[in-house]
Each structure stands twice: as structure tokens, then as C-alpha cells.
Write a protein that binds this DNA or RNA. Sequence first.
DNA 1: AGATTGACCGTGT
DNA 2: GACACGGCCAATC
Length: 103
Amino acid sequence: MSFTDRVYEIVAGIPAGKVATYGQVAALAGQPGAARAVGNAMKHNEHPERVPCHRVVGSDGSMHGYAFGEGTVTKQAMLQREGVVMLGGRVELARSRWDGAGN
DNA sequence: AGATTGACCGTGT
DNA sequence: GACACGGCCAATC
């Protein structure tokens, strides 16, 4: 069980209609501050069907990239399709931020 | 094992 | 609000 593996499990636990920040996932993985490592894991994501990496955004709700589809464009589309509120290309973390528990 | 990069984050200008 | 700098962690060359 490595850091990346834990990240995959956590991201896989993010419910539809909600999103989590890299730093948040990193903290839940046991490494607060390893936001970059989380992004790296997403890029290396070997289980796109099991790990909804599109539900992971930046601390500001902004998105940086996406290993599939058209990239950030597809990412936004998928998020909106899930019911996530978007403002100018950024996710409204105030409403769609995943609490990491049961909310 | 050493050096470099990357889907980050916070702060300052 | 946009751009620049440093620090952080993990993976890759």
C-alpha cells in the first residue's frame, strides 16, 4: 500500500456532484502538503474507471489538467454533468467541496 | 543514488 | 486579478 494507492482509494470514494482538492486528498492520504504528489498520481492513474480523477481540482476550485478526453475542457463538462456548480471555469468549492466523510 | 519534472499551494508584487 | 518565487512530495530519467 503506497501513497499513490491510498490516493486512488480516496478519490474513488468521492461521491458524484462533489469534488475534492489535491491538498485535501493528500491530507486524507496521510501526507498533508503532498498536493503535487496527488496530481502526479492522477496523471499516472491506471484505473480511470475506478478513480474519477475529474473530481479532483485545485485549492481554488480551478483545474490544471486531465489525462483523458480534451483535458480540462472535458473535465469541466463531466463535473457539470455530475451536477457540480461551476463559476467561470472554476468549481464552487463552497458548495461542491467534498467533506471527505458523509457531509 | 543524484538530479529533474509535474494535473500543487501559499505568499508577495 | 495576473505574474513570479519558494517549498513540498512522489515518480521518472
